[in-house]
Amino acid sequence: MPKAYWISTYRSISDPAALAEYAKLAGPALQAAGGRFLARGMPAQVYEAAVNQRAVLIEFDSVAQAIAAHDTPEYQAALDALGNGAERDIRIVEGVA
């Protein structure tokens, strides 16, 4: 079964304190659900139409595991803490086998 990758990009951050609270809750919640953080932070370089914005890449053993991680009560609590503190784009993509 191919691995899955959760890709988050942050279009804007309007409340850094809410983002910090989200991070305190989301990291442990996603790791407990089987996620492995591979990269997070600002890009070292951008090309073409890319925007220089914060990005996070998390690996899961499957798409189903990534979706289940998003839907856990622990991650939902992290989203509640974030509220409207950031505009993000989250994608779950199946890896190439």
Rank of each mutant, 00 (worst) to 15 (best):
E74G: 09
G85Q: 09
A86D: 13
V56Y: 04
V46G: 03
K24T: 14
A55M: 11
A32G: 09
A32N: 14
P43Q: 00
W6D: 11
A69M: 07
G34Y: 07
L30S: 07
W6L: 14
P28R: 00
A33R: 11
F60K: 06
A66D: 06
V51K: 15
P43C: 04
A55N: 10
S12I: 11
A78P: 00
Q76L: 13
L57I: 15
A77M: 09
L30V: 05
Y22F: 06
N52L: 04
Q53F: 00
V93E: 10
E87T: 10
L19N: 08
Y5T: 05
D15P: 00
A66N: 11
N84I: 06
A68V: 12
S62M: 07
G27D: 05
E59L: 12
A49P: 08
A55C: 07
R88A: 06
E94D: 03
T9G: 12
N52F: 13
W6A: 11
A17P: 06
G34H: 03
R36K: 04
A78S: 00
Y75R: 02
I58E: 04
Q45C: 14
M1K: 15
I90D: 08
A77N: 14
A26P: 01
A68G: 14
Y5R: 10
G95R: 00
A18L: 05
T9I: 05
V96N: 02
V56E: 12
P73S: 12
V63W: 01
L82H: 02
G41K: 00
E94V: 02
F60R: 15
L25E: 06
R11L: 12
G27C: 05
E74C: 04
R40A: 02
L82Q: 15
